[in-house]
């Protein structure tokens, strides 16, 4: 069995399932909680990764912006010096108009880097090993991927304990 999970009707039951799994010795990052919308008010477990992720995404966006800025500077420099035209008394490499190009490409770089970070970090486009379409219908899924064979019974008990739990095993979308 590559995954075991329980489906819960509300956040309180899902939290009880998570607490049960933690009590059974499962580490927070090994527990998967799937919801059909972000449950900002619920802290199923806090391993401090949220701040790390946020910092990393902002850093990547900043890096993308710097890359865009560098590309814009290089592009405008190459373009303007390759074919030096005298326009309206402006210098061949005119800073004021070039700042516009640099601003636009800086922001473009930041936005593209954000999307790439999201796709890679959220593991989008990869094969799903633990999922149940009931999540889209409002249930909260709490599960464990690739559980130890000898601990399956204990983990199943922990998942079955909260009120309204429905157990399942291994699913893919």
């Amino acid at each position: 069995m590559s995954a075991i999970y329980g489906l819960y009707p509300d956040a309180a039951a899902a939290q009880a399932a998570v607490d049960g799994l933690r009590a059974a010795g499962v580490a927070g990052p090994d527990i998967t909680v799937l919801t059909s919308f972000p449950m900002d008010g619920c802290r199923f477990f806090d391993d401090g990764s949220d701040d790390r992720v946020r910092r990393r995404m902002w850093t990547m966006a900043g890096g993308g912006g710097l890359t865009g800025l560098t590309a814009a500077f290089a592009l405008s420099w190459v373009a303007e010096t390759s074919w030096p035209l005298s326009v309206g008394g402006l210098p061949v490499f005119a800073w004021w108009p070039n700042l516009i190009i640099m601003f636009e490409l800086t922001m473009l770089g930041a936005m593209l880097a954000t999307v790439v970070t999201l796709v890679v970090g959220a593991r989008l486009g990869r094969r799903v090993t633990l999922y149940d379409p009931e999540v889209s219908r409002g249930h909260i899924l709490v599960g464990i991927e690739r559980p130890d064979r000898d601990r399956i019974a204990a983990l199943t008990r922990a998942l079955a304990a909260p009120a309204g739990a429905r157990l399942g095993g291994n699913a893919g979308a």
Partner: peptide, 16 residues
């Protein structure tokens, strides 16, 4: 894109 709604995915989407 294989979206399943894990806490990590929601957090990253909202930050993005």
């Amino acid at each position: 894109l294989g979206w399943r709604g894990s806490s990590a995915q929601w957090h990253r989407l909202e930050t993005a």
